[in-house]
């Protein structure tokens, strides 16, 4: 009758390595559990669960009985487990070649970042859509619902771009599209909002210094009357028959005359 150790003789490729591998699997599982727990705690402490409330992603996650925080921490855990497994494979030396392990390792790291970027992109996109939509709710115009959606897809587009370039997919064409889009947005938008921006800059000065205030009689660029209202963009001046809406940049450019009563 053979003794028990003899039965196992020959099973191990290398006695030391097997013990090490078993220790690694056990340690890996422990680290996995720990990571999931820590990531979850950190995300909760930072307030991620409240921030993502109401987004489509969170609802989808809750549909499968999880939550965004749970999902993200699980993803972190799974990737950690994969890295661990890879390490075990390397230690046991059962991979066909070392360079394969190295390649897979590199790819896993990039995949991990790409997945995180996509998740964050979807979350930020959803959240931006909700926030912008709420801001615009007071504007009673059906077409305005396009803007929150535009914001969402812009964020998603950029997130996809980052994720794809992480995976070393050729993104040149997409990048050119993004550049054209950004150029259109900033250049044309800047052109369109030029007057509003310069008025706002002047308005900040006027509101802070208040060279004239509501109730004063002023003359600005030929319009004379009593100041009825000042906000960041315009000054509303009213005379007996007319109401003048004077952009604040005009006040700074042309100057204002205050009439002493």
């Amino acid at each position: 009758m053979q003794s028990v150790p003899e039965q196992f003789e020959g099973l191990a490729l290398d006695g030391g390595n097997l013990t090490l591998a078993v220790a690694l699997v056990v340690g890996g599982l422990a680290v996995w559990g720990g990571t999931v727990w820590i990531v979850r705690r950190v995300l909760l402490r930072v307030g991620v669960d409240e921030a993502v409330e109401g987004t489509a992603f969170e609802r989808a996650a809750q549909g499968v009985g999880s939550s965004t925080v749970g999902l993200v921490s699980q993803v972190c855990g799974v990737f950690l487990l994969l890295f661990g497994a890879l390490y075990v494979v390397e230690t046991l030396d059962i991979a066909p070649s070392r360079s394969l392990v190295f390649t897979v390792n590199q790819f896993l790291a990039r995949l991990f970042v790409a997945v995180l970027v996509v998740i964050v992109g979807v979350l930020v996109g959803d959240k931006a859509e909700i926030v912008v939509g709420e801001r615009l709710r007071s504007v009673k115009l059906p077409e305005v619902t396009v803007i929150p959606r535009l914001v969402k897809y812009s964020v998603l587009y950029i997130a996809t771009l980052v994720a794809l370039s992480q995976l070393r997919v050729a993104t040149g064409a997409l990048l050119i599209m993004l550049a054209a889009y950004a150029f259109g947005l900033f250049f044309l938008g800047g052109l369109a909002f030029k007057d509003l921006l310069s008025s706002a800059a002047a308005g900040v000065y006027l509101l802070l210094v208040e060279p004239y205030s509501i109730g004063d009689e002023v003359e600005i660029d030929g319009s004379r009357g009593i100041v009825q209202e000042m906000d960041i963009f315009v000054t509303l001046v009213e005379s007996d028959g007319e109401e003048y809406l004077i952009p604040n940049r005009k006040v700074l450019r042309k100057g204002a005359t205050r009439v002493r009563g």
Binding site: L208, S213, I214, G215, D216, I226, E229
Partner: peptide
């Protein structure tokens, strides 16, 4: 409402606590 006209139909009793506040 009509604050410009109201201001012209009134006078301050003392310093205005809301001056330069928004």
């Amino acid at each position: 409402g009509d604050a410009g006209k109201v201001m012209n139909n009134s006078r301050p009793l003392s310093y205005n606590p809301f001056e330069k506040s928004h």
